[in-house]
Amino acid sequence: MADSTNSNGGVAVVDEQVADERDAAVGASSSGRDFRPTLGAAQIDQQEDTIEDVAVQIDDVGLWYGAKKAIEGVSLDVQRHEITALIGPSGCGKSTLLRCINRMNELIPGVRIEGQIRVDGDPLYGSDVDPVEVRRAVGMVFQKPNPFPKSIYENVAFGARINGYKGNMDELVERSLRQAALWDEVKDQLKESGLALSGGQQQRLCIARAIAVQPEVILMDEPCSALDPIATQRIEDLMQELAADYTIVIVTHNMQQAARVSNRTAFMLAEEDLVGRLVEYGRTDQLFTSPNDSRTEDYITGRFG
């Protein structure tokens, strides 16, 4: 949206002020306007741009909130056991797209979705697909940590129990908490409320809760936006570890985060018509160093958004 004011001479003053503020903010962490992040270790030894093993196939997806179209014609393939980041300015539909992957949008009245999404080749949309089963296969971690107001143990066990888990629940809870790098901190207080934990611990509890039901894919909707930098780093490290077993799709406002953790990045943008579209999708290193689209370049160099 800011780019539309850019081209509009009438509000140039406002735009200049915004740019000044941004320059000041950027100046603290790097020199100059270009805060193109340095690349993390995840990308170094994977240079090909082809996707061999598609975990999630998004095929021409569009979505309406009532009469208002929010996203249109988004198609992209998500590589298995990688981290795929969705970036873009506010209102570009990246969270909306993410929530299409586990049919969470249908909980909002008046939402209509077109196109198809497949997980492991199985379609998510169709009269014979139960959204309840979709959401078990595609877990989700939300922007604000939202543990149930119940014990830590119960937070993790709930999903398994309602899905008829027949195995040893104690083992599953421990394994899930270990995978979420939380076990050592909470093993002596499993009966205490999940809300008694710190924000970062709560978010890792939510990750443990998500992986306890053994999903194929984990969606993360700005999982660190409510966390401090240290808690953020722990979550990012955890994501890297989880990518060995799960396919992760993350929405983030933080481009450094996308660059640090993700293997591939999709850049979305809503232009004058306010309908979000996919602008560019590719390997994170490639997208951040030599984007094909000038709008991507403008965004990642901080010219708008």
Partner: peptide
């Protein structure tokens, strides 16, 4: 009852009734 609790419950594959019964009504 905050909508985030409902989302969390649906997010692990709970049905509507399981969500209402286990989280919404108790709160």
């Amino acid at each position: 009852v905050p909508p985030s609790i409902r989302e969390a419950s649906y997010g692990v594959g709970a049905t509507r009734w399981q969500t209402v019964r286990s989280h919404v009504l108790p709160q």
